[in-house]
Amino acid sequence: MKNAGFERNVFINCPYDDEYRTLLKPLLFTLRYCRLSPRIASERLDSSEVRLHKIIEMIRESKYSIHDLSRVKSSKKGEYYRLNMPLETGLDLGCKEFHSEDKYRDKKLLLLEGERYSIHKALSDLSGADVKCHYHEAEKMVESVRSWLVEVGLPQIPGPNSIWYDFNDFNAGLYSDFSRNGFNAGQIEMLPMPEFLDYMDYWMEKHLEDDGDSGA
């Protein structure tokens, strides 16, 4: 996804495993639909880049950030809990609090959880932060992110029905266009993220820009 500048960039801190794609896709779509530019670590596949440096760069370039902490807990006995996401949340909070430039004081952070109040149980220091629950559902992800964008004061945010219905239409377009090009259903589901993002931009341009409004 393109760097749209500090005021439009949204840093995404989330898991990048296959299971999470069901939530990542609607999250990315909602942001792009609202004319924001999501920045994710897998947006470009350059193995020579040190991951942490890439993340710090994206935090520095983004006024907004979304930290999904719904998957930090180990899911079975003997499995480690995941520390990357809390680490990146801490880096972002540190940037907001300690950076010498004034613009970083106005950073806006959203914390996402999968079960109500789970973040406060694990990270009570974050009490008072903006937390929303997506209940591990794509539809709720759209609604949570959209509500937060309204709450932080972004103008002309489309309604939740528009975003969710258009996300479903977008998925049909993706399926149709890639099937026509010889992809099977599994390959379409697992498209590399840069390819998925490119198609999303193409779809948005084709379906929304022509409307002359925000797509609401």
Binding site: T22, L23, P26, E137, W164, F167, N168, N171, A172, A185
Partner: peptide, 12 residues
């Protein structure tokens, strides 16, 4: 077009 709960296409 029949969608899954997550919005992706299950059947066409």
């Amino acid at each position: 077009v029949i969608h899954r709960r997550d919005g992706t296409v299950e059947k066409w």
